[in-house]
């Protein structure tokens, strides 16, 4: 989809925005992915309005994910490196908050206690994000190396929290398997299995320096790469990354739609 005209018009309305020189073409898959994250964010927000506070953490997490994913659609996202770093951090905070919600859900199934308030979650998340922005802004403008490190940290945190979430969701399911929404919770487990493979594949490529950001960095630096020797592995990891990125966002939207049906 060619959005060059739209963004050029936007720069004429808001002159402080950098000029758009290149064509802005966004492929439908990327749009669809962001749409799925939007669906997840919207449903989870709805649950947090009408349901228990525990959904608030999960809702904020998915909203932040939608935010960090949709940010990458804007043509200026590579112009402001500080903002790229901040958005990697937002993506990282998102999985932390979602995991917090899942842990609270688990505690609920064991103790049947719901403690805390929505306000605390909102303020807590805002404070973490503010702190993150402060840390990024107080430090030097991130180079491509630094941005890649931020991305690697994001993948690592996702990878390990996905493992913990899968385990926790399985435990939650065991506690509530005869409850009406048990299958919905189990679907979340599937989402995190997909996310584990998605982020795991990304992490694998980064650890062996076969990822695109690294190849971009070394393109002009004369640093050699052994990617040609391992092309098979790289191709498998790349296709896993792409496929499971799509499956994660698709399954998360599907899971929330299913939960919506179960909770109505």
């Amino acid at each position: 989809m060619d959005l060059t005209g739209f963004f050029q018009a936007l720069t004429s309305i808001f002159p402080f925005l950098p000029k758009v020189y290149n064509a802005v073409v966004i492929d439908y898959t990327s749009l669809l992915l962001v749409f799925f994250w939007f669906v997840a964010a919207a449903f989870s927000f709805y649950f947090s309005l009408n349901n228990s506070r525990i959904w608030t953490s999960i809702s904020i997490g998915f909203f932040l994910l939608f935010w960090s994913q949709s940010y990458q659609l804007n043509p200026w996202h590579e112009t402001f490196t500080v903002m790229i770093a901040v958005h990697y951090m937002i993506g990282t905070v998102a999985i932390l908050v979602i995991s917090h919600g899942i842990q609270e859900y688990f505690v609920f199934t064991r103790t049947l206690e719901i403690t805390g308030s929505k306000k605390t979650i909102y303020i807590g998340t805002a404070a973490i994000l503010a702190f993150t922005i402060l840390v990024v802004s107080l430090n030097p403008k991130p180079s491509l190396y630094v941005l890649r490190n931020y991305r690697m940290m994001n993948n690592t945190v996702w990878f390990y929290l996905c493992i913990i979430n899968i385990y926790t969701i399985f435990k939650i399911y065991k506690e509530m398997k005869d409850s009406p929404i048990a299958n919905g919770i189990l679907s979340f487990g599937v989402v995190f299995i997909f996310a584990l493979i998605w982020k795991g594949a990304g992490l694998y490529l980064m650890m062996y320096q076969w990822d695109k950001p690294w190849l971009d960095i070394i393109e002009f630096d004369g640093i050699s790469t052994d990617i040609a020797l391992h092309q098979g592995k790289v191709d498998i990891a790349k296709s896993l990354f792409k496929t499971f990125n799509f499956l994660t966002s698709f399954s998360v939207a599907g899971t929330f739609a299913y939960l919506f049906k179960l909770l109505r």
């Binding site: 009408n50 349901n51 228990s52 525990i54 859900y105 609920f108 049947l112 719901i114 509530m176 409850s179 009406p180 929404i181 179960l262 909770l263 109505r264």
Partner: peptide
């Protein structure tokens, strides 16, 4: 009701 909201639909 408060606890059940995490376990079942509002109709149930």
């Amino acid at each position: 009701e408060k606890g059940s909201k995490l376990l079942a639909s509002s109709n149930k």
